[in-house]
Design a protein around this nucleic acid. Structure first.
Length: 607
DNA sequence: GGCGGAATGT
DNA sequence: ACATTCCGCC
């Protein structure tokens, strides 16, 4: 079954399934929805509407039918489909837009980076349709983590782009998605639309044709459909059937996919055929590829990459959030974070330029990230358990779920020691887990350059994934500076996660406007500036804080362990130990992340 | 229409 | 895990 389509594509399947185990590779509903949304043929069936990932199912029955066809469930109907959609609520993949019939909203913040890791950070984002989720540049033909920067992507000389090796012709054959033949013949039309030139096209057509969309008489070749999506004008316009082109020359304003907000993608003919991760291009089970030296997925979903990549990745994320107003929760103060500094083009994100110089790193020391998104915990269960007061207060720099799903705690190799980083003028970073919300764990990365950090370096023996993510942690550190950096340079306390959670589906406040610090509903902010530590003056450089979240597997997280962990933390706290002695079990992770994030901090170092 | 529990299926 | 199916409830 190793068709090109199968192994060709680069996205590891977990990229499609942020929340689930790397087992089931069946099409998922949200995926399918995205697929429909992407195609203008279905504009009358389902379409983006409203803001930020909001879409309306204009024809529930039809959508259900399509879904049923895809899944070979002829009995599918909207009632059932909607039940499936409702299951997404808990996973926070989707939300219902109240008051609007058949209207739901994607939490792209949850999905984009896993499904569209190649968000182009270069554009200003101006003029992007509101409901538009970030759109990949489309140039990347294989999976990389972290995502490439545009320059990398666009560079013809980019090694990755040429290595045909494992990916052989990826760009050309994603057409796979179509093979979900319901053998019983009951329902054909396996794929959404390009089921197969003329064969699968049928059924829908009569109805569709009546409404005047989708020319049944002009079935598009499968490839066309695939390449259409992000290609932006360039490639697809030409291939599009005349009448379709006529009618659909301009993608509807709210349909994000055909239009790339990116400068390059808009019309760049240089781009390789755009791919849609949303398509069913699920790779074969083995994923025997090795994209690049830096980024080689290894068996067991372990990827390695270097700090530069990480940095770019985060940069990208930041920018995407900024551009698309993705996550007020995760990026409360995003404009001040890793976003490129206009006045510092040189040092700043070489997104379009060369990769960061990285002074003391002859060769990037790869650190491994275990990419194995654990299943989400059951929110209800967790809530039932009570929240333990270790709620996160949210906002300091949080890279939120994206990282959690795609990244995870890192293990750094030792080629670059924290010592070297220090000598290079890099900030010292402290890493500690700080919270566990909604089955996510956050790891706080703190700039503690001014502190006395004792040697946290231990070997980087890989830890069992579960041991990496599981600690609860009272934010009771001697130096838990977690600030919200405001545009005016002042620092604001972080905001409780819960306050922001709601906003995930709302439009975030304008970046420049940071309201007054929100009070913590639960009385005690989890993170706060150290008592007695004067808040940095506005002019001062505020310690950079990064926060990584990691999902964990609730199943593996027994009460017992929980207690153990907490006990450890308790002890640690009581002893009043500081930076140098993270709780047992966290140490390694901390030191690793420490180094990993030190690089990330570079850019903000000289503020 | 929309919600979510429960049982069941893959 | 991720639906599908059924269903009582609002």
């Amino acid at each position: 079954s190793q068709t090109d389509g199968d192994l060709g594509f680069a996205f590891p399947e977990w990229a499609y399934k942020p929340e689930s185990s790397p087992g089931s590779r069946q099409i998922q509903l949200w995926h399918f929805i995205l697929e429909l949304l992407r195609k203008d043929e279905y504009h009358d069936v389902i379409a983006w509407q409203g803001d930020y990932g909001e879409f309306v199912i204009k024809d529930p029955d039809e959508v259900a039918r399509l879904w049923g066809a895809r899944k070979c469930k002829p009995q599918m109907n909207y009632d059932k489909l909607s039940r499936a959609l409702r299951y997404y609520y808990n996973k926070r993949i989707l939300h219902k837009t109240k008051g609007k019939r058949f209207t739901y909203k994607f939490n792209f913040n949850k999905l984009v980076l896993v499904n569209y890791p190649f968000i182009d950070m270069g554009s200003s984002g101006v003029g992007v349709p509101q409901s538009a989720p970030p759109v990949p540049t489309g140039a990347v033909t294989h999976f990389r983590f972290p995502p490439s920067t545009p320059s990398e992507v666009l560079s013809p000389s980019s090694e990755e782009l040429r290595s045909p090796g494992v990916f052989g012709g990826v760009g050309r054959r994603l057409a796979r998605g179509s093979v979900s033949d319901c053998s019983d013949g009951t329902s054909v039309n396996s794929e959404v639309d390009e089921g197969g030139g003329g064969l699968g096209e049928e059924r829908i057509p009569e109805r569709a044709a009546e409404r005047g969309f989708r020319g049944a008489s002009h079935p598009r070749p499968p490839h066309d459909a695939m390449f259409r999506m992000y290609g932006g004008g360039g490639g697809l316009a030409g291939r599009r059937p005349p009448e379709v082109a006529t009618h659909r020359v301009h993608p509807e304003p709210l349909s994000p996919f055909p239009v790339s907000p990116l400068p390059g993608a808009g019309g760049s003919a240089l781009l390789a055929p755009p791919l849609s991760p949303a398509l069913s291009m699920t790779p074969g089970s083995h994923l025997p590829y090795t994209p690049s030296p830096n980024l080689s997925p290894m068996p067991g979903s372990i990827f390695s990459f270097n700090p530069e990549d990480m940095q770019r990745y985060l940069q990208a994320h930041t920018q995407s959030v900024y551009n698309y107003h993705l996550s007020p929760r995760a990026f409360f103060h995003y404009p001040n974070i890793v976003v490129p500094q206009p006045h510092r083009p040189d040092k700043g994100l070489p997104a379009a330029a060369a990769p960061l110089p990285l002074p003391d790193e002859p060769h990037p020391s790869p650190f491994k990230f275990k990419l194995q998104p654990p299943p989400p915990g059951r929110r209800q269960q967790r809530e039932a358990q009570g929240r333990q007061g270790s709620l996160s207060s949210g906002s300091s720099l949080s890279f939120g779920s994206e990282l959690s799903t795609a990244g995870g705690a890192g293990l750094l190799s030792t080629s670059s020691s924290s010592g070297s980083l220090s000598s290079a003028g890099l900030p010292k970073i402290k890493v500690e887990p700080i919270s566990d919300i909604e089955s996510e764990e956050e790891v706080e990365v703190t700039d503690i350059s001014d502190e006395d950090v004792d040697e946290q370096d231990e070997e980087s023996e890989p830890l069992p994934s579960h041991s990496l993510y599981r600690h609860h942690h009272p934010h009771h550190h001697p130096h838990p500076h977690i600030f919200r950096r405001q545009s005016n340079g002042t620092v604001a306390p972080t905001v409780p996660y819960d306050d922001l959670e709601e906003d995930v589906f709302k439009a975030p406040a304008p970046p420049s406007l940071f309201g007054p610090p929100l009070p913590s509903p639960r009385g005690s902010p989890v993170v706060k500036t150290e008592p007695g530590t004067p808040a940095p003056s506005p002019a001062q450089c505020i310690p950079l804080k990064l926060r990584f979240k990691r999902r964990w597997d609730q199943e593996q997280h027994t009460e017992e362990e929980d207690k153990k962990v907490r006990g450890g933390e308790e002890r640690d706290r009581e002893r009043g130990e500081g930076v140098g002695t993270p709780p047992h079990g966290q140490r390694k992770v901390s030191s690793e992340l420490h180094r990993a994030t030190a690089q990330l901090s570079l850019e903000n170092k000289d503020c």
